[in-house]
Design a binder for these strands. Structure first.
Lengths: 200, 200, 200, 200
DNA sequence: TATGAATGAGGTTTCATTCAT
DNA sequence: TATGAATGAAACCTCATTCAT
């Protein structure tokens, strides 16, 4: 009668991921701050009380979403950096992915909300920031590659990476549904800011 | 007529401004979303109920702060644009002002929070966005001037202005107290992204 | 320089009456319970604080309005009773006045609201009831006259008066603006309930 | 599945009804307008917050009580109308029930309060009035029967029903605890107003 | 008398979290 | 695990009344 412990664990993992997916979805729709536990529970079609069998608190849910999102982004950037491509093409891949996928949008919102809010879990903010900083490194490496290729303007690669990512995030925030700034956002346009060649 | 109507009005105006200043201050410290009316009242050293003699609702307070901040910024940018200076120097003035003054920081936070939150006042979000868009125009004019001077890279001036402002805002958000990204933010570095000459 | 004390008193009386008129008006529009002191002050175009120079409390205002209304009604009924007319014509006068004049409507509402609410002034309810009961007497006298004339059905005159007035009040309540019952209210119809002759 | 869904639902229904009963009780004692959610919660011996698990707002509670009361009254009147009895006896049943049962009294108060107050739920007032009007129909039918029997005076049956019900309600309002009018209320006396025979 | 700012108590409502089943 | 009722703290807001001018 006893279940396989391993299988149980896998099942739990799966439900947990489902819960986080639903939470992110509902955050994207209602906006963080307006999202309650019961919203999340309803989205995942489980009961309010049951949410607490998977997470200790609401903040832990947000923490987990952030961790997942930033980790996935970090892996994507690291992988992109390792490709055999010119630097500008790599950056193009990264920027267009970031600006196009809806989940990235929600994550950006969450990252900034987590920073802006007085979240109760003390570590959240510093962890978010730390992961953010760590994720700058692959981008910085790409930029360094671009400088070696003569394709990217001079300057401290980490600083430039920081500017690029901040710009992308800034642009993402201009696209909040219901408050879209009416100005074009084009990846090519953004990358020209770093492009050394077409200036002269 | 034991009171002077004109003086009363001036007094009211003064107290109202004081209240808004205190509110911005406390928002800057605690972060919007964590700020309650009683926080604001305590900061201004008046009672909670009295706040409602000056504003109909919490949202109206935020609206007013936003309006004041964006209007002041708009005037500053417009004035800067009208100076008799090279474009890059004008941009330098704007960026360093924006990145250095603490109030600007709080305003940026507020602007984004107003967008991210499901605020009840229906017009808030669109008004914020509209003012934001309008404030792009003087920056765009400066960039156009810079292109005529051969100092700024080619491209649609409004688009470039949008990128510049989004970048500044993105950077501002990386400086939330308690979550500062450990990477340098230098106005000169930022402006090199637009600088045509020192690339070649 | 000193004003004439008598004139002062008259002026005060006049302002006081104006205040009460305005209060009744605004109660009629907004409904009691939704009316605040500041509503009344605004209607009378004086300041909130100044209201308290004329009345000790909100309840006292209501008390006074009720007293004025019930007293005026009592005088009207007493006067009507003293006329040299058949009883049914007297009743017709009373009923049509009651059902047609708007102020009467507001007074009826007030009377019942005063009873339904836990008003703080302890005497209010009993005073309202006492005046109500006293005002039944002239109506009762008219009914007695009608019985002597053979025009009104048999029965204790006071009891019949009580029924008639309760009926009028009940009908008045069916005419609250925004919730009017769609059924005809005709004085002739009402009086047929008391009419002895046209039945047989 | 540690719980039984069907049983849960029944339990909820039961608690909900209990809550409404307690609310009506406390309204009857304190008068509507003086009743707060915490009064209702205390009467039902649950916490304030928990009230909101059953009703979205205070107004919804009032709506629900009104609906229950008017519906029950409508069923009672309809049932009475269908009995095999002389019309006057049917009317006697209805009037004495209405005048004697305490709950009816509280309901009448509520009905009128709902009309007098600027309630926030927009439909409340019109719904109350609509149900009131619909509930006139069975009474009207009884009166028509009485006219065929030669027992009830002539006139539009609906109009007479309206008068009768308004009278009953008017009398009910004279019995507010603490403000009882000292005059007899006798069902026989009331019905004589409609009685054709004992006049001549 | 006249003003309206100021207060403070009280009301409604929301919601993260706990708990009995 | 799973449920959703229950709690309690905290938020927003209203308003009768007082008070300094």
């Amino acid at each position: 009668m006893a279940r396989n412990a391993e299988k149980d664990q896998a099942l739990r993992e799966k439900r947990l991921n489902h819960l986080l997916d639903c939470a992110l979805e509902v955050i994207a729709v209602k906006g963080i701050g307006a999202v309650s536990i019961s919203d999340i529970a309803a989205a995942a079609k489980i009961s309010v009380g049951n949410v607490y069998h998977y997470f200790k608190s609401k903040d832990e849910i947000f923490d987990e979403i952030l961790k997942r999102g930033q980790t996935a982004y970090g892996e994507f950037v690291t992988h992109t950096a390792s490709l055999d491509l010119p630097a500008l093409e790599k950056l193009h891949l990264i920027c267009s992915s970031w600006l196009s996928v809806r989940n990235h949008w929600a994550h950006t919102i969450l990252i900034h909300s987590a920073r802006l809010a007085e979240t109760s879990l003390p570590g959240t903010r510093s962890q978010v920031t730390e992961r953010f900083t760590r994720n700058l490194l692959p981008v910085s490496a790409i930029i360094e590659q671009g400088q070696r290729e003569g394709a990217v303007i001079d300057g401290d690669p980490l600083e430039l990476a920081f500017y690029l990512v901040s710009l992308i995030q800034g642009l993402t925030l201009q696209r909040v549904p219901g408050a879209e700034v009416q100005a074009p956002i084009r990846v090519d346009g953004v990358l020209k800011l770093l492009d050394k060649r077409n200036r002269i």
